[in-house]
Computed example of a mutant assay.
Amino acid sequence: MSDAFLSQTITIGTGDGEIEAYAALVQDAAPRGGVVVIHHMPGYDEPSKEITRRFAAMGYNAVMPNLYWRDAPGAAPDDAAATGRANGGVPDERLTIDVQGGADYLRSLPNSNGKVGTIGYCSGGRQSVLAAITVDVDAAVDCYGAYVTGTVPEGWPLKINALNERVTEARCPILGLFGKDDKYPTQEQVAEFEKLLTDAGKEFEFHSYEDAGHAFFAVDRPSFRPEAAKDGWARISAFYGKHLGA
């Protein structure tokens, strides 16, 4: 197997047209799984592209849809994210269409084994769980997604509702990675999420890290926690190895 991969901006089809996306594709014919990376609220930025490339280095084809493409086509990431926030964020229905488009693209590749997972950070964590409910995927990773459970406070910048009981409709296993010092989500909200999945008999695994808050994976922020991030990446690798193929 080759360790070479090609990363570039592409266009993918969705249920209502085409959008920009960033792909990192392994350059050999061996069958492999794919990962749809759901970027965080700051948008389709360089740190998120680096995460996409990391999955290719791990041996998966990966694609990251630009969720703000319809709001601000061609705009710089910061400007597009500002426009997206001003519009209330990415509507859930549109997110479902875009992630399904990413999954369909990955499955269309000649070296796909047919299995696709999702991963999201911050707002993308909630959206990864939403994808587990609404999209044909085989595994979903939620990295500290706010308002999977709980109540969205008045004045919250995104026009969303917490998923709450909808999580029991998840169609694939879920890996959740959280910081014990996080306020979005709180440990109480994580516990509620866990109970809903347990009571519904869903397959999942959750891990919460001491001395870690929100965005502990973000190497470019003061919130970065190396030990939690290292362990989190190991768990992501094992989870995808189990559900998407080694």
Rank of each mutant, 00 (worst) to 15 (best):
Y209V: 00
A139Q: 06
Y147G: 07
G101D: 14
P42M: 07
A170N: 02
A29D: 14
E165K: 14
E154I: 11
W233T: 00
Q127K: 08
G15T: 01
A76E: 14
K195Y: 05
E20R: 15
P91D: 11
S123K: 07
V152T: 07
A24K: 05
G124D: 09
G176W: 09
E20M: 14
Q189E: 15
G241C: 04
G155V: 06
A215D: 15
Q189A: 15
L163M: 05
L197R: 08
K49G: 06
L163V: 06
H207F: 06
V116R: 08
Y184Q: 12
T52C: 14
L109M: 09
G59H: 14
G176I: 04
S123I: 14
A215M: 12
G245F: 05
H243T: 00
P65Q: 11
T151P: 08
L109Q: 10
A82G: 11
F193H: 11
D16R: 04
N111M: 08
I10W: 11
Y68H: 03
G201L: 01
A29T: 04
R70K: 09
D199F: 04
L106M: 10
F217L: 01
E154Y: 07
A30L: 08
T151L: 08
I10D: 10
I12D: 11
Y44H: 14
G125S: 11
D16L: 00
I133L: 02
C172N: 06
G34T: 07
Y22V: 13
R107G: 03
A131D: 04
G179K: 04
P173W: 10
I19L: 13
Y44D: 12
L130F: 02
G150D: 13
A24G: 03
A56T: 01
T96R: 15
F5S: 02
N87I: 05
V219M: 11
G117S: 09
T52P: 08
K230T: 11
H214I: 00
E188S: 15
A80P: 00
